[in-house]
């Protein structure tokens, strides 16, 4: 977008871990939205492609003092020294200066997976198999997102296709900037417990910018200094402790 006139945005997310019950609706909506192929027979939790992964986090207590929360983990859209951007040998990853969204171009990617080792959030996925859709299902693909081929890395881009649509709509309506209601990522849209708030962190009046000020809001691996834009919140003390202590072992 035009540097001079276009307002800069920094899109971010706040996920309320106390509201999330791990139903998985976001994961499914994400896969449908982004034309991720169904799993190959041998795919596992470690070889699957889930742009948004909901991971259980346990307090480690013994039964019945056990507690588990679910952590939806999309790409954290790191802002500063974005780990995956710096390492990509051929500029297949970049941070969009207009939105702060970390973009991945699978068409440029050679599949070296260096970015995956660089990402501490494990939010990047490699296509180990040729994507295969059951016969006929290709006509049910989302026309706004290109399917990826095998051998490349892919990841969450905050449903960038929806931003395309919103921008086009804004252009058609003669508006300079998009209507925030037109740009809602699929996971945010479908969350039945409304655990995710999405918005522009740059816009101080947005619900998100207000909500991230809460003392119970944190980011994973904050000390690494990557300035990720996906925030989490929990009122449970053990969650806060565990998220801040970082170390797991």
């Amino acid at each position: 977008m035009d540097q001079g006139t276009q307002k800069k945005s920094r899109y971010g997310m706040l996920i309320d871990l106390d509201r999330c019950n791990g139903c998985g609706a976001c994961m499914v909506a994400c896969a449908v939205e982004h034309n991720v192929a169904p799993a190959e027979h041998k795919a596992t939790a470690r070889t699957g492609v889930t742009w948004l992964r909901v991971a259980p986090m346990s307090n480690g207590g013994e039964f019945p003092a056990t507690d588990t929360i679910y952590v939806p983990m999309p790409c954290q859209q790191c802002e500063k020294d974005t780990p995956c951007v710096a390492v990509c040998p051929q500029n297949a990853v970049d941070v969009d200066p207009a939105t702060g969204i970390v973009g991945q171009v699978p068409q440029r990617c050679l599949g070296c997976r260096y970015c995956m080792t660089a990402c501490p959030y494990h939010a990047r996925y490699f296509d180990w198999w040729d994507p295969q859709w059951p016969k006929g299902m290709e006509q049910a693909l989302n026309p706004d997102v290109a399917p990826r081929m095998r051998g490349v890395v892919e990841k969450c881009n905050f449903c960038h296709a929806r931003l395309h649509t919103a921008r086009t709509k804004a252009a058609a309506e003669g508006r300079e900037s998009i209507n925030p209601a037109d740009y809602v990522p699929a996971c945010v849209e479908v969350c039945p417990s409304k655990a995710i708030v999405f918005g522009d962190l740059e816009d101080a009046t947005s619900e998100l910018a207000q909500a991230v000020k809460h003392p119970h809001v944190f980011r994973f691996l904050e000390k690494l200094g990557t300035e990720s834009k996906v925030y989490y919140r929990s009122d449970k003390q053990w969650v806060l402790d565990k998220a801040k202590s970082l170390q797991t072992v």
Partner: peptide
């Protein structure tokens, strides 16, 4: 030429 600064995803889907 028009001084537009974009990320890759601005034109790739």
């Amino acid at each position: 030429d028009r001084n537009k600064v974009d990320g890759c995803v601005a034109c790739h889907k």
